[in-house]
């Protein structure tokens, strides 16, 4: 249920950004959520819809772009993307020495404002 806290923070940041730039209404909010971030998109949507009432984002839709877990191997230098939420070894050479490059994102990337 930590999606409620995340939706709260997301609304807070978006509303502040909208107001700071001199706009009064948010039409949509686009976010990038890493698959390894521990956030369930469905739960975040549910929390967002429940909490947006009475804010500048009252009529806003939340667009969630999921970011897969990707990385590169320090042994065979191959870049990889996996469907799981974690990487235990390089999918190409099974080396356990690798660097994770994406999958933990929790970012706001774009607001549609009026």
């Amino acid at each position: 249920m930590h999606e409620v806290s995340i939706a709260d923070s997301l609304l807070d940041t978006s509303v502040r950004e909208c107001r700071d730039k001199g706009f009064t209404k948010i039409g949509s909010i686009k976010v990038c959520i890493g698959k390894a971030s521990g956030v369930m998109p469905e739960a975040l949507l549910f929390a967002f819809d429940a909490m947006k009432a009475g804010t500048l984002a009252e009529g806003a839709s939340l667009i969630i772009e999921e970011v897969p877990v990707s990385g590169h191997c320090n042994t065979c230098n191959t870049a990889f993307t996996v469907s799981e939420k974690y990487v235990l070894c390089c999918p190409h050479c099974s080396s356990e020495s690798f660097t994770v490059d994406s999958g933990r994102e929790l970012n706001i990337v774009e607001l549609e404002v009026d």
Partner: peptide, 14 residues
């Protein structure tokens, strides 16, 4: 209009 933003969702907490 579209407004590009680059902030972390948990900025407030951080």
């Amino acid at each position: 209009m579209k407004l590009k933003v680059a902030s972390k969702i948990l900025d407030a907490n951080e």
